[in-house]
Simulated scan of single mutants.
Amino acid sequence: MTDRLAVVVPVFNEPDVARALEALRRQRDGAGLSVYVVDNGSTDDTVQRVERFAADHPDLAVRILSEPQKGTGAACDTGFRAAIADGSTVVARTDGDSEPAEDWATRIRATFSRDATVQLLGGTSLPLRDRYYRWSDDLLMSGALRLLRILMAVAHLDAAYLRFVAGHNMAVRASAYVATGGFERTSIDRRDEDIDFSVRVSHRLGYAAVRIDPQLKVATSMRRVRRYGMGMMGVHHLVPALRGKLIRTIDVR
């Protein structure tokens, strides 16, 4: 039986959200794809732009949800649970400032259909060529993510961090999401709900339940790196207790 695939996109004041939606519309295996855009209290016209996109492209099933509680954890949990309630068996996630490759949905479906062991799937992050892009970002992003996984595994003495899955490029079986409790409904100035979720899946369902497919590619904006710098981004992930103290303005959604 073919998995019913949904994609959750949390948004907050996303000027380029149409770009993310267009990337989902252009998926080679987009038949039956459902998209849940979760507005997390936008103060601009993000919702109206999503509505216009949906009206102009009826071939992509877009549902708009609202989550007033601040945080990507809260917004994504609302979207995932709505998709699961609607019958989706696999739920993916990307961000409003990200652009999945055209074979993204194909690779997600193929992996979950082929291997019943896999419960959570991640991939490769690429720099999005938007106004925040710099020529060195291609080398910077690939090396930084590998290094961060190693540093977090050492800091926590836990190999599960070697396979943490970034929120802009992930997919999970609905059954695994429910069984592990899903995303913590936290905001990014407190915790990284995607990393915490990855580790929890590995602990509860086994290390092999989490897979990183290097060919599962999503380009994502470097806007947060541009604002805080690579060093401060490392501190942000490695020492979350400093958020709101040394790091005073984390949430740039």
Results as ranks from 00 to 15, higher is better:
A75H: 09
R129T: 05
D56H: 12
G79C: 07
I108E: 01
D77F: 00
G87N: 05
A54D: 04
A55V: 04
D251G: 04
R63P: 04
I150D: 04
Q27C: 08
V62R: 10
R173K: 14
A174P: 05
M141K: 13
R223E: 14
V7Y: 12
D29M: 05
H237T: 00
T117G: 13
R93L: 07
L148I: 04
R25G: 09
R52H: 08
A144Y: 15
R211S: 12
E22R: 14
A74W: 04
A155D: 07
D115N: 14
P240A: 03
R146A: 13
G123L: 05
R185G: 05
R248A: 04
V201P: 06
A20G: 15
S142K: 10
R93C: 15
N13H: 10
R28Y: 03
A179D: 14
G123K: 03
W104M: 00
A6K: 01
E193I: 03
G181W: 03
T72P: 03
M152V: 02
R163H: 12
H236D: 08
G96K: 09
L162E: 01
A176V: 07
I212L: 13
F112W: 00
R131L: 10
L246H: 00
D138G: 08
A85T: 06
A110L: 07
R226L: 08
G96Q: 00
M1Q: 14
V154L: 09
R243T: 01
A85W: 00
R185S: 02
K217Y: 00
D59F: 00
G71D: 09
D194G: 04
A105N: 02
F12V: 08
G122Y: 00
M233Q: 15
I84S: 00
F80S: 04
V218K: 03
D77M: 01
L5A: 15
G73E: 03
Q48D: 10
A75E: 12
G181C: 00
D39M: 08
A82Q: 14
D77T: 02
R191H: 14
L60N: 04
L147G: 14
R211T: 07
L148P: 09
V235W: 06
